[in-house]
């Protein structure tokens, strides 16, 4: 603005950045160090570059009675992708239906979907568990992913995007002879691609980071997600291999962080627009 360096701003922001980067750095550094040293409280801030192989070797680690880390990563990825894909598809379709059509009980449908805003999985864990048991979905991948696919937020976000599509654009397509499905495919999907990307990031992170639901519905170790696995690891009374726990935590962090960083531009825009 006036050519002077804004030291206060840099100072505050650097502190903020350190607040988040430092723990992450500790995690990275700790992963490469000697387990014994960490246990004695001699965690160094300098990573031991000779031990970078730990990130690879840790893939075969497992909590007692659990699945190996690579398997948990796979389960997490599958679950996050299934939830993201499923949620985007069904909310896109339902938002399209309530926005571009008039049909009987349309508002009832809309409010039914809307009401789920007020029913996060946490407040209805016990009865949802019971329903899942009735359907025989306990300890199944379907049971893990499916209940998390439905939610109002994604539908509301798409609805908002769709309502903002100019009427004239729809009319132009109709004059060009496009029917509803053709319009959805040729015009609406490409036009809202950025919003879909944003939603993908949000839902992928949401799915990857789930804890309570997998804890409940999948007691079978072969369905353990990486988040569940980590908590199991540090939950033991005597953790010895701290460096390997740290390496696992790094692996658990990597995918969602990568998704957020790679798609940052769309993600920030989509998140803040959708919530208003």
């Amino acid at each position: 603005m006036n050519g002077r360096v804004d030291w206060v701003a840099h100072g505050v922001l650097c502190c903020g950045v350190l607040l988040f980067v430092l723990p992450l750095w500790l995690l990275l550094a700790g992963a490469t160090q000697d387990a014994g040293a960490i246990s004695r409280g001699e965690l160094s801030l300098l990573p031991d570059l000779r031990n970078l192989g730990v990130f690879w070797s840790v893939l075969n680690d497992r909590a007692p009675g659990g699945a190996p880390v690579w398997h948990m990563l796979l389960v997490s990825a599958a679950m996050a992708l299934a939830i993201a894909g499923g949620k985007i598809i069904i909310s896109l379709l339902s938002a399209y239906a309530v926005t571009f059509f008039r049909f009987p009980f349309r508002m009832l449908c809309f409010w039914t979907i809307f009401i789920t805003l007020m029913l996060p999985v946490e407040v209805r864990i016990v009865p949802t568990y019971a329903v899942m048991a009735d359907f025989g979905l306990i300890n199944s991948f379907t049971g893990l992913a499916m209940p998390l696919i439905a939610s109002a937020t994604a539908t509301l976000l798409f609805r908002q995007v769709f309502v903002a599509v100019p009427d004239e654009l729809v009319e132009a397509a109709r004059m060009d002879g496009a029917g509803p499905l053709r319009f959805l495919r040729d015009i609406l999907l490409p036009v809202s691609a950025a919003n879909m990307a944003a939603l993908f990031v949000i839902v992928f992170v949401y799915g990857w980071n789930q804890y309570l639901w997998p804890l409940l519905v999948a007691t079978d170790p072969s369905l353990d997600t990486i988040v569940i696995g980590i908590v199991k690891m540090i939950g033991q009374d005597s953790v010895t291999d701290w460096n390997r726990v740290m390496a696992t935590a790094v692996l658990a962090l990597l995918p969602p962080v990568a998704v957020v960083l790679l798609m940052q531009r769309w993600f920030v825009k989509g998140l803040t627009e959708g919530e208003k």
């Binding site: 988040f20 992170v205 804890y211 540090i234 740290m246 935590a249 962080v257 957020v260």
Partner: peptide
Amino acid sequence: TLLIWPYAIAPAIAAVLWVLL
């Protein structure tokens, strides 16, 4: 960017990081 990435941290993983501290 450096302030946005922690959005991706799972609450459970946040706990792990704080255990380390």
